[in-house]
Nucleic acid binder design. Sequence first.
RNA 1: GGUCCCAUCGACUAAUGGUUAGGUCACAACCCUUUCAAGGUUGCAGUACGGGUUCGAAUCCCGUUGGGAUCACCA
Length: 484
Amino acid sequence: MVRVRFAPSPTGYLHVGGLRTALYNYLFAKHHGGVCILRIEDTDRTRFVEGAAEALIEILRWAGIEFDESPEKGGAYGPYVQSERFDLYRHYAAELVQRGAAYYAFDTPEELEAMRKRMQDAGIAWRYDRTSMRNQYTLGEAETHRLLESNAPRTIRMKVPLSGTIRFDDLVRGTIEVPARDVDDQILLKSDNFPTYHLANIVDDHLMRITHVIRGEEWLPSTPKHVLLYDAMGWERPAFAHLPLLLNPDKTKLSKRQGDVAVEDYRQKGYFREALINFVALLGWNPSSNREIFSMQELIEHFDLTKVNKAGAVFDIQKLEWMNSEYLRAKPLDELARELLPTLQEQGINPSLEYLARVIGLVRERIHKLCDVPSFAAYMFSAPAEYEPAYKAQYWRPDYAAPMQALTERLAELTPWSASILQETVKAFTKESGLKIGILMNLLRLTITGRSVGAGMPETMELLGKDECIRRITTALQQFSLES
RNA sequence: GGUCCCAUCGACUAAUGGUUAGGUCACAACCCUUUCAAGGUUGCAGUACGGGUUCGAAUCCCGUUGGGAUCACCA
């Protein structure tokens, strides 16, 4: 049974890189009929942000990622919040000491800082020097015992072998080897008795029966420590899969500095969850097909961890835009209308769902996001307050007033008021007015919408209705004649 | 700097020893056209470099260069 977990720390918003990690875990689990777990890693109380865990869960749900076991939902291996599992970590830290795989250290932050400076000055890569610092080996058993009894501040550190090679397999990268001498004696239990990530992580992954650890590449350098810990406890190591990073356009790790990184940002900007999911799914993985659009179900069907790429992927917002517009065109209009209506109502616009759906149908191919509708098609909800000066300058001439007046009268008599009949009528009017259809259509666009861009005029006019169109043309013609 | 990871068009990627190196986004041109889009057609553009192995290398090996990650009592 495949069991995977997404284990964010509640320190703020959910990063799109985190979303992809969560997604790959989810896809992998679902593909194999396994279980996907959410675990909150809040062992660092100094970085705790109130409400962050709830926000994380909420945005993941929005994205369509549901967990089988989580803090809310519970499960057989809970609790799923690390701050509720502290006793466990202390227990295993003590056991590690008993097994000789970890030891007590009593150095103060100042002493550690001094050590670092010494090593730096000597030009050595700094790592904890077990032989010269204040720990159970240098202090001796009696002194160590005395310090422990007197409740002196202490940490528990990993005892990393001084020589040899640490080796582990990664599903994405193959076998990785690291010289043990380059691995630091990582602190496992802090002086406040809280565990560090490394300890809590392996304890929970083991206890929660995690079979595959799928996480970002930034964890690769600390994986040797984790495998050492599994081995020391005599626990079976999970399979590891380190995902390539999501990158800024300059190829550095995707960061806030260079644009939006929070999933929330993209939701607020009006991207569909399906588009965001589809897009990030294809950043670092691809099912070897020439297709680009996949539903969550299809992603689950095709997902294969072994086909995940090794190299980082630039987060290209332009392609996201394109993908979003693909979804905008494919979704049912009534669904889109329902989704957009609340936003409109906030702006004091309250069209019927049916009308709104038709407006969306008219303009959806011209925009990228659903939320672009109100600004792009503002004229569908109220008469133009102004006429684009450059557009008017291009198409309006005083001697068009008379033919436009005649056309308006012709339009006023039309029944039924439909796009095809409007099209025919305007076309027929080219003959008697001597004006080209391009001129006439643009004059209608100018007077009715006030804007140079928009959906096709006959369709726009049909939807707006005869009375509204006649009124708008008349108003515009009056205003233009006053101006000249 | 130490350690680790990585390297196909500008971007996302396909091709797991034999292809004219394919697709998508972006970009450009043309067609369509009442505007803007969309759509259609076409184009631009890539195996970082150098050595090997092999009949044959984007693909395997080595080196170089370049990029990235990481090096806390953070996760």
